[in-house]
Amino acid sequence: MKSLRVLQAIYIRVKRHKITYFIQCDPTESTLDIKQKLQELVDQPTNNQRLTLVSTNEILDDSKTLAEQKVENDAIVALTLKKDDNEFEEVYIARVEDFTSFS
């Protein structure tokens, strides 16, 4: 048997606007675990975050694991944050075509 590694099995790409967070995780981790990892990076507590699996448009459930929700290696997950009026913002991931460079 191979020795145990610190490295976790998969990574997901969490996207909001023009930013992408590469998050290493394990299929047995819950959505809440992922939000806790994001907490410091996005500067927002977990209950202000909502994660949506982009391929199915499904909002991820805090208590369910990634495997249960079919979140696989390299999956793209949209992050939305709670606005001042306590509602979540719309999913928005910027596309590179909207920002053509001048070179």
Binding site: K18, I19, T20, Y21, F22, Q24, L41, A94, V96, F99, T100, S101, S103
Partner: peptide, 13 residues
């Protein structure tokens, strides 16, 4: 990136 898109990755990666 050139167009100002940001990628946050582990330093180890």
């Amino acid at each position: 990136s050139a167009e100002g898109f940001e990628f946050v990755v582990d330093k180890k990666a």
